[in-house]
Design a protein around this nucleic acid. Structure first.
Lengths: 207, 207, 207, 207
DNA sequence: GATGAATGAGCATTCATTCAT
DNA sequence: AATGAATGAATGCTCATTCAT
């Protein structure tokens, strides 16, 4: 990678970092592009060399952070010895919620986006800028876990959709406002429900 | 109510109606107060006699519509003979989703807001403009249903929170984009999960 | 007219005057709306209460000034006793060119616009802001002169088109750059040509 | 001409061609230098190696196209046997208008520029990039035609100025908008007027 | 209470131009 | 000679809010 490309990547990331900080600090609509470039230390025009507009940078940001959060959870799972699919799902959910817990900004940015539809369209394809995958995509991970599972599942997509919406939606208030209860208190109920959903969709032992 | 108060109320509602139409047609951030007053046929200054700002009118709108949607479902339930709590919850959920189905604008406005925390804070208190209750509040309804239920439930608030987030979250994509499947296809899984949540929280028969 | 309407008209005219000065001084494209409002002493937003954009104010300006120039010429003609149509045309042309001569800004703004098509569409209809005519429109004037003329003319519109393009076009360089010769030197040739055009289109004495 | 010079000339012409297309398609002020270089397939900085700014390239373009149009007409005239000066002028005018008719972009670029002053200053000097004349300049052509004419003319420059302004001005609306009438219908009147102008300036047979 | 003209800070976006490579 | 990333001043335009009538 040439010196120029290096600098370009650096600028791009500086913009993404600044935008992230400002979005979670002041909110999306109260953050102006002026704010972003000022914080990133680049000129206004430079922003438009890398992103189409504010929405564009937000989308890149969400896709990037969401992918990261999943990768973190997946890697952590690798360090444990968890073979059961149900336990794997719970482990990943738990790990993600813990990441959210210590980093509220992630909740603000991601929580409401955690839905199957969104992940399918934007996160799974391109975790980095180019999909030249060394790291497996989240979709691939999910399917490989599914294949190795003891049971097979009816409509795994619907199943995951329900789980994601449940977790994504309920974590928002619990983490940010401790409503109706703090996350730690919510977790048992949440995971029990997740297990319930998984069992509903179980089909039969994959001998 | 005097003639003057009548006219006042009329203006207020004209503003709310116009805002609703514009918010769901062009989105919140692309709707200006100018647009609202033009559509409502009142002067710009008049807006500020009734609402603090755009956020204020949106909150009133959400509270009002959400309350309406619940009331509709509750009244429809009254016309059937449903005594079992679980069936009552499913009936209400189903009725609300059907209202959403035929009126996508409601999904746009409400779906992501359907959470226990929100409903508790804004809908339950003031369904109309003043809380002078002729119609029972949703909170009251919920508690009365709960009292008459055959079983008692542990942490009914958490239970309802989970149910609401699940329904609110998953209906959005299913209704608007038929993702991951159309609502009709999603419903059985959704309701099974809701029943699962309810049963998890059952305590014992209320003899 | 109320006090408020008075002020509005005043603002509008202040904007038109400022725009005119700036357009002819620095040119259209080098004049910004900021310049115009600063010079007019109103706020930026006020501009947009009166005009759609810079093009809009230019069009109003052109229509207004062109109408004025014609009215001036027509009124001056009324003070002389000129009955012959050919002499009337020459008198008006001469008067307009003299106005241009002493006010170069008019040439810059109008000369290239003096064509039958333009005048028909914008100037003739609405010399003021409203067409509530006390002053007869230029179109009406032209037709009344034509009716009273000794001769009738074939295709009077084409005839006037040619005359207007000839005068409008040739006056530009002659007045602004004295090229190929100063206006005074050009005039005899120009008027001779105008007379030639008129005679070409003569049909027969209108006895 | 070396290979390098070839490539240079190629870039230059690519820029001119692209600018021409974009100017007539989107207008001068709505065409950016970015647009031009993108379309020409060269880098932004390269533009400034060949032209000072957007105005500069436009001037070169106009001069080049105008010269071309005249040359085309002159060459076509050479293929006929036209010896009378009046007929020669009409033939050239007619040929130019026909070129405009089939190529509206030429009207957009040139029509309003067709004046003696402009032609004298920019076209006659440098039809190509360098005045290294193989093709005779338009000025030279005009003078040679004039010398061979049967009659001599008073003030031939003023005469040509009037003719050019008349044709240039009146063709614009006629061709682009068919106003006040389509060109074909306008032509007889136009040419009759041109002949009128020529005869007015005739002095005496040059025998 | 109701009006709507006026405000001006604020915003996204463009673009000619430069200059290190 | 050629490049194209970077610049940042400049611009058109919006809009929530105020306030004299």
């Amino acid at each position: 990678m040439s010196k120029v490309d290096d600098k370009k990547q650096q600028k791009r990331e500086s913009l993404l970092d600044s935008a992230f900080q400002l979005f979670i600090e002041h909110g999306f609509s109260k953050t102006s592009i002026s704010d972003i470039v000022r914080s990133a230390g680049v000129a206004k025009g430079t922003f438009y060399l890398y992103f189409k507009d504010k929405f564009d940078i937000r989308n890149h940001l969400i896709a990037h952070k969401a992918s990261q959060v999943f990768q973190n959870a997946y890697e952590a799972m690798g360090r444990e010895q968890i073979t059961d699919f149900e336990e794997q799902v719970i482990f990943i959910a738990d790990h993600i919620l813990d990441q959210f817990s210590v980093n509220h900004s992630l909740v603000l940015l991601l929580s409401k986006q955690l839905s199957w539809g969104f992940l399918k369209s934007s996160v799974f394809q391109a975790p980095g800028s180019s999909s030249s995958g060394d790291t497996p995509t989240i979709l691939a991970i999910f399917h490989s876990l599914l294949e190795q599972a003891r049971y097979s599942y009816r409509n795994p997509e619907i199943m995951m959709y329900l789980i994601l919406e449940l977790i994504g939606g309920s974590s928002y208030n619990a983490i940010l406002y401790e409503q109706p209860v703090p996350l730690s208190e919510l977790k048992p109920y949440l995971y029990q429900t997740v297990r319930g959903i998984l069992r509903q969709h179980r089909q039969a032992p994959t001998d």
